[in-house]
């Protein structure tokens, strides 16, 4: 069985897909950095940033709303920012009573809250577009080019490869557990502690299997000439359109920053 739920790459032929992964990683980071630099309430700049994002969507041949549809993953975290609505002094917008507290939403608090959400929402969309248009192994190569230490990129490459294999194993373990507890009659079975123990037992089993697998993988590496030093390949080459796209994207981002401060 394949663990396709883990695949985020969308195979299609587009301008953005053909770009060098380094450029895509760099522009993504620059865009997210730009969001962080925009002051609260820079509505015009936020709007322009979104336009930039929509253009990127279009040039990726994925449909204009591709990233929008997948962008709500970070929303639950908004809860932690909710206190800024009430805690920042400013002109009161609305007051209400909640359980024990009298809460007043201030205009500056509201401004800040919405700005945090917009920054987060824009950033996450660019990250979604990155993994949809660059295959993950290529992103790993890009990280190598961008000076991430090779031991880390190698661990990440192994993690990516075995994610699918071990994901399958977890899936089988959980299926077996469900089958057993269904046979026992009650769906979730005894106490929470007991259930946590079963989960821990599964984790232990998975640990031992993974440990043994790492041994066999090491043997397989030895058999093919590995002697402690890992050679890596960097098959990417920057071309003219990569440089130009990077330059244009940086200019656009610089413009966003200016627009945010007018």
């Amino acid at each position: 069985m394949h663990f396709d739920a883990f695949d985020r790459y969308h195979e299609t032929n587009s301008f953005v897909h053909r770009l060098d992964p380094r450029i895509k990683v760099a522009v993504t980071v620059a865009f997210i950095l730009s969001n962080a630099l925009l002051p609260d309430g820079a509505w015009i700049a936020f709007g322009l940033s979104w336009m930039l994002l929509l253009f990127a969507n279009i040039f990726s041949n994925l449909g204009i709303a591709f990233t929008l549809k997948r962008s709500f993953v970070a929303l639950p975290f908004a809860l932690v920012a909710i206190t800024v609505l009430f805690s920042i002094p400013g002109n009161p917008l609305a007051s209400f009573h909640f359980l024990l507290w009298d809460l007043t939403i201030s205009d500056t608090g509201f401004l800040r809250f919405v700005s945090i959400l917009i920054r987060s929402w824009l950033s996450v969309q660019m990250a979604i577009l990155l993994v949809a248009t660059a295959r993950f192994p290529d992103i790993i190569h890009a990280l190598g080019h961008l000076r991430v230490p090779s031991i880390l990129t190698t661990i990440i490459a192994f993690l990516y490869r075995y994610l699918f294999v071990l994901g399958d194993e977890v899936f089988r373990l959980m299926r077996a557990r469900e089958a057993r507890s269904a046979a026992a009659g009650r769906r979730s079975g005894r106490s929470v502690v007991w259930r946590a123990n079963v989960a821990g037992h599964m984790a232990g089993q998975l640990f031992l299997r993974s440990y043994e697998r790492s041994d066999r993988v090491y043997n397989a590496m030895l058999a093919r000439g590995y002697a402690g030093h890992l050679e890596t390949i960097n098959p990417h080459e920057l071309r003219r359109r990569d440089y130009i796209t990077a330059a244009l994207a940086l200019l656009a981002i610089l413009f966003l920053q200016l627009a945010g401060r007018l």
């Binding site: 192994p137 066999r216 993988v217 397989a220 000439g225 390949i233 098959p235």
Partner: peptide, 18 residues
């Protein structure tokens, strides 16, 4: 166990590379 790289190319190239 034998195929430990993300892509086919990297795996087949591993031996010659090393």
């Amino acid at each position: 166990d034998q195929l430990f790289s993300p892509t086919v190319f990297e795996d087949v190239a591993f031996g010659p590379l090393h």
